[in-house]
Nucleic acid binder design. Structure first.
Length: 608
DNA sequence: CTTTTCACTTAGTATATAAAAT
DNA sequence: ATTTTATATACTAAGTGAAAAG
């Protein structure tokens, strides 16, 4: 209301009159800005402030849930007549099913996957299952298959998509938006909530991480008759696509999912659930950090106890103590058992094997050093050398083969049972959350200064974030263009440095000239201007140098995972308030939405 | 007890979109 | 205006851990 009136104030008109040239752009700029502010306000008003409401009784996740069911991927479109598959040099017209799966492989031909033996064998086995009897009789060797034309077609399609006109792109965008509008939202207890993954996963070739024994297998198309729907009985129950039926419609308000199906590779269940900014996800997230904060108050005692247990006569207790020490000190994951042959060979703390650990009497000046080298979640390598006091591991590893478990008397179930007896809600993963968050808080305190300028403050924040990412071993592949873009940045810095020195000489000259013309030390416009130019140059240079440092340090480290999953957002928000840094410098839009509860409730004096 | 099932969080990468540079 | 580069989002695999089933 107020804002609208301001727009018509005479003051603005007067200003416009003074600068007739800038009138038009200025006005539209102001208008869009205003629209943005208005939109923001509206969004704020419609936001569900669930954190101010009372919690439901135990186990109840919702009282009313209505949605339109999942969105199914489009059905397969057969190849155009001018694109052919060849076997042993001969043109072969494949059946629809075989053609579809063949195309999955053809599309990946420029990917390393398709050169791997396991991938090729798994693919070929599953592909043959899709073939007709005749096809199977003919096609017996993947090496004799020629997918060149299918591959070329795929490449051309990708290229064509890039070259679409603006109108075509807009049309695609609108079509996608329509799908989101129809399937992307649900109604949960009177509030419209965004669904996280409302699309059924399309068929394709399974791509596991690392040396996955099932890579290349066919991930089959999901039909409505395989899908279970979950919603309120009295709601508008989603209708299955024409000619199809759901596997089941149930009304279970003790779970948060809207639909589920069983995937054919591992036989595990996939769920359709709400977006991270929803109440159901947010509340759980908040709870997670509250449990971690509770650990803060009793972690000293727990540490004392496992320190004592290191000397226990009971081997079981001793192993538990060592494992707990690793989990606490090194932020290792629990390490549940995995089915051999079904998944890639990765381990966590409790599943560590003798071959993953090397003991050194002496290393790099320290005595009794443990060297870890193993593949963890997602086949990310964990490599670390840690000095320890006691020689427990020696005993655990005595008379064992490389493939034997280090902790043969310990399982994650045993460990977690012990932990939950020490504190309600405590399990191995809570240590990761706790140590990540407390590290961020300590590092922020240590690294940042109120007197720093904004880029420096943000560098400190990133460095604190980075300390956590390193602790949790959150890695990423170095960006493909890393070296190039680093060099570009360096070139820009060099160019700026030259500009700065030039500006400095000009300033000196201007000062000299000013002195000559009037000996009194009164302000001189030219000197003022040159001074400002030098300062601006210095600021820009600093900003770029900070950026370069940040970039280099981040080359193979991923900050996002800890930011999103391990760091209590209230620590970051409190830091922003303290340092007078806008929250949107550290959290983008969707992150602010996810952490809306923290943004709303956190004061500058929050302590984790 | 052990094994299996289920529900949910955590994870890195591929792709789309926005921002910056030319 | 177009191309390049950076950032955000989409995707789905891979974990954790509690509870049910055997």
């Amino acid at each position: 209301m107020k804002r609208k009136r301001i727009k018509d104030e005479p003051a603005v008109k007067k200003e416009d009159g003074e600068h007739p040239v800038s009138q038009k752009p200025k006005r539209t700029k102001e208008e869009t800005k205003e629209a943005r502010v208005k939109k923001k306000e509206e969004e704020e008003k419609s936001r569900w402030r669930w954190w101010e409401e009372e919690k439901y009784e135990d186990g109840v996740k919702w009282k009313f849930l209505e949605h339109n069911g999942p969105f199914f991927p489009p059905e397969y479109q057969p190849l155009p007549d001018n694109v052919h598959f060849y076997y042993a040099g001969n043109k072969v017209k494949l059946s629809l099913a075989a053609e579809e799966v063949g195309l999955f492989f053809a599309q990946m031909l420029d990917h390393e996957y398709t050169t791997k033996k396991v991938f090729r064998e798994n693919f070929f086995t599953d592909w043959r299952k899709e073939m007709t009897h005749e096809e199977r009789k003919l096609i017996k060797d993947l090496d004799k298959c020629n997918f060149t034309e299918l591959f070329a077609m795929h490449k051309a399609r990708v290229e064509a998509r890039k070259l679409m006109t603006k109108e075509e792109k807009l049309a695609v965008k609108e079509a996608n938006q329509k799908i989101v509008d129809e399937y992307g939202y649900c109604l949960l207890d009177h509030h419209k909530e965004r669904i996280g993954n409302f699309k059924i996963e399309p068929p394709g070739l399974f791509r596991g991480r690392g040396e996955h024994p099932k890579q290349g297998m066919l991930k089959t198309r999901i039909l409505p008759k395989q899908v279970i729907i979950n919603c309120t009985k009295e709601s508008r129950v989603p209708v299955a696509p024409a000619g199809h039926n759901w596997k089941e419609v149930r009304h279970d308000n003790t779970v948060t999912w809207l639909a589920s199906w069983t995937e054919n590779i591992q036989g595990s269940i996939k769920y359709i659930m709400l977006n991270a900014n929803s109440k159901l996800k947010g509340e759980k997230d908040w709870e997670k950090y509250e449990v971690a904060r509770k650990l803060k108050s009793c972690v000293d005692n727990i540490r004392k106890q496992y320190d004592q247990d290191l000397k226990s006569k009971q081997m079981k207790t001793r192993q538990r103590a060592v494992a707990l020490y690793f989990i606490d000190k090194l932020a290792l994951r629990a390490g549940n058992e995995k089915d051999e042959g079904e998944t890639a060979d990765t381990v966590g703390c409790c599943s560590l094997r003798v071959e993953h650990i090397t003991l050194h009497e002496k290393l790099d000046g320290s005595e009794c050093v443990v060297e870890f080298d193993f593949l963890g979640k997602d086949c990310i390598r964990y490599y670390n050398k840690v000095p320890v006091i006691k020689k427990n591991l020696n005993i655990f590893m005595e008379n064992k083969s490389p493939g034997d478990d280090v902790f043969d008397r310990l399982t994650t179930v045993l460990l977690n049972k012990h932990l939950s007896s020490l504190m309600p809600g405590l399990s191995a993963k809570v240590f990761r959350t706790y140590n990540a968050s407390i590290t961020l808080q300590q590092q922020l305190k240590e690294l940042s200064n109120k007197s720093d300028n904004e880029p420096e403050k943000l560098l400190s924040y990133n460095r604190a974030n980075r300390a956590v990412a390193i602790l949790c071993n959150h890695q990423r592949a170095a960006p493909k263009t890393f070296d190039q873009s680093m060099a570009n940045l360096q070139a820009k810095i060099d160019a700026r440095k030259e500009k700065l020195s030039l500006a400095k000489t000009e300033l000196k000259q201007a000062k000299k000239d000013a002195k000559k013309s009037s000996p009194e030390p009164k302000p001189h416009p030219l000197v003022e201007r040159k001074m400002a130019a030098v300062q601006r140059c210095e600021e820009l240079l600093l900003k770029m140098e900070v950026q370069a440092t940040d970039k280099e340090e981040n080359k193979q480290i991923s900050l996002g995972t800890s930011k999103l999953n391990y760091l209590d957002p209230r620590i970051s928000v409190a830091w922003c308030r303290n340092m007078v840094v806008p929250v949107d410098k550290i959290y983008n839009k969707s992150q602010r939405d996810k952490f809306a509860w923290a943004l709303d409730m956190t004061e500058a004096d929050f302590e984790f």
